[in-house]
């Protein structure tokens, strides 16, 4: 076994990655054409491309959620922010405003939401679950108010491109998500910014004594989550070419949190894995696709998801690790 491989095995991303590969293997056994990708009219088609395309929104949400969870927080409002951003973009476009104005408006909504959450957590010192619950409850009402309680249709070719367009044969939404992850990686891991996030999540008091602007770093994390959520809202609205203030982003916060946890980032904060969240979100999307392939009705799909959460939680708990470790020690190597 080469040293590189050993290092990969020890890396925290190895487990979610192994899970993803296992899931892909199961799919290939069920449906041998699972991995087939064809080129048609200069666009790539196939199940993996679908997964990337459909997974773009959870990917972007998981990115923002990773930042917040790294600081030891959580953001329950991302689903509602998605609905608000989608609604604002739709209404601006319907009102004859330009694409740029609509996008700017939607992102501004996300940043405003992130600002509210961040101020409540960082300045007022309110528990993240409670602080973001406010916007989660109120945000959907605001989204419904913005569209007047209707599902607003969007007819704009440029806007639709964000959700359904292709760039160099690849779905534009997926490319956007990958670019965002790469950007976040450069920003956080090639500078000290990522370390600041982890330090704040690990021990805010010590971070403050070390001279870190704890409140500012926390605020930035929530702003990032808000911006990501608004982007996901734009993508969702562009994908179906409509803004549905009732259903858009429903349970999206739970999926995003789950993707981050599957990816090996602990909810206690102080450590984050961007690559893990990326793999985690893809894993969830592949699981959804698998359910679809197996003919499981979409309504029942939460059951395997629940079992998966339990499995991941138990695998990550110290008690189970102790048991497993004991097993390995006793068995002759």
């Amino acid at each position: 076994m080469s040293r590189k491989f050993r290092e990969l095995l020890r890396s925290p991303v190895a487990w979610p990655l192994a899970g993803l590969l296992l899931l892909v293997l199961v799919n290939v056994l069920i449906n041998p054409a699972f991995l087939r990708v064809t080129l048609l009219d200069g666009h790539l088609f196939g199940v993996p491309v679908d997964i990337l395309n459909e997974g773009a929104r959870p990917l972007v949400l998981a990115l923002g959620m990773t930042l917040v969870i790294a600081t030891g927080g959580i953001d329950l409002s991302v689903g509602s922010v998605m609905a608000m951003a989608g609604a604002v973009a739709a209404v601006l476009l319907a009102g004859g405003h330009s694409l740029a104005a609509a996008l700017a408006g939607a992102v501004a909504v996300g940043l405003a939401g992130g600002l509210l959450n961040g101020l409540l957590v960082a300045r007022a010192g309110i528990q993240p679950i409670v602080a973001t619950l406010v916007l989660m409850v109120a945000g959907r009402g605001i989204a419904q108010l913005v569209t007047g309680g209707d599902v607003t249709l969007i007819r704009h070719a440029g806007f639709a491109f964000i959700g359904n367009g292709y760039l160099a044969g690849l779905p534009f939404a997926a490319v956007l998500a990958v670019v965002l992850y790469a950007g976040a990686h450069l920003l956080l891991r090639r500078t000290a910014a990522g370390l600041f996030l982890e330090s704040v999540g690990d021990n805010p008091v010590a971070s403050r004594f070390a001279g870190l602007p704890v409140a500012g770093v926390t605020l930035l994390a929530y702003l990032g989550a808000g911006a990501c959520a608004s982007l996901a809202g734009i993508m969702a609205a562009a994908n179906i070419q409509a803004a549905d203030p009732y259903r858009m982003g429903e349970n999206a916060e739970l999926d995003a949190i789950f993707a981050v946890v599957v990816g090996g980032t602990a909810l206690t904060g102080g450590r984050f894995l961007l690559a893990g969240s990326f793999v985690g979100a893809l894993f969830l999307q592949t699981l959804a696709q698998t359910m679809y392939q197996l003919g499981v009705p979409p309504a029942v799909a939460p059951v395997p998801k629940a079992l998966l959460i339990l499995a991941v939680c138990l695998l990550q708990s110290d008690r189970t690790r102790g048991w497993l470790g004991g097993l390995f020690r006793r068995s002759p190597a």
């Binding site: 789950f258 909810l267 029942v300 059951v303 629940a306 079992l307 339990l310």
Partner: peptide
């Protein structure tokens, strides 16, 4: 997380 799993389980 655990009660979230419970929620998915019961709703499913």
């Amino acid at each position: 997380l655990i009660t979230l799993a419970g929620m998915f389980l019961m709703r499913g």
